[in-house]
């Protein structure tokens, strides 16, 4: 499938969707969003790119092997749970830190965020893995 319109659009949409997916991931704690939707959105960015060009190009954009990405995501989620364990609380107990940078700018971060990033990576990795593998069979034949 080669369409100039799709290709041009994909080129511009890809970074936007990816950015949006990260935005969705981070806002998730207070507003609709989160690692799951974020991961899916990011996956759709790659899938769009693969549709417009081909799987090889999309893989190139991902840079790392998607299965490996899944594994890293899983590991990250697991590690975020160890923080609670290290503090003598049950596994996966959230730990929060709060940094006051200026009077109005207060940064709060905790292990659930790490966990959510892990979810994001796993969802992205799995979706992309399956879709790329399926689409690759098609590419090879055509």
């Amino acid at each position: 499938m080669t369409s100039l319109i799709l290709r041009t659009a994909a080129r511009y949409l890809f970074p936007l969707i990816l950015l949006f997916s990260i935005y969705v991931l981070f806002r998730g704690h207070n507003d609709p969003g989160g690692g799951f939707v974020g991961g899916l959105a990011a996956a759709s960015a790659y899938v769009l790119y693969a549709l417009a060009f081909d799987v090889k190009a999309a893989r190139g954009l991902l840079r790392v092997d998607s299965a490996r990405l899944t594994a890293w995501g899983l590991l990250l989620a697991l590690l975020s749970g160890l923080a609670g364990l290290a503090a003598g609380r049950p596994f996966l107990t959230a730990r929060w830190g709060k940094w006051t940078i200026t009077e109005t700018w207060i940064v709060k971060a905790g292990t659930p965020l790490l966990f959510d990033v892990g979810v994001y990576l796993v969802v992205l990795g799995v979706t992309v893995t399956i879709l790329f593998a399926l689409a690759e069979g098609e590419d090879e034949a055509s």
């Binding site: 704690h29 207070n30 969003g33 989160g34 659930p112 965020l113």
Partner: peptide
């Protein structure tokens, strides 16, 4: 849970083991 989005707080904090 330090978050206003209940769904997400449940997913990544209260029920994090399920999500894992």
């Amino acid at each position: 849970g330090h978050g206003r989005n209940i769904v997400n707080v449940i997913l990544v904090d209260y029920r994090a083991l399920d999500t894992l």
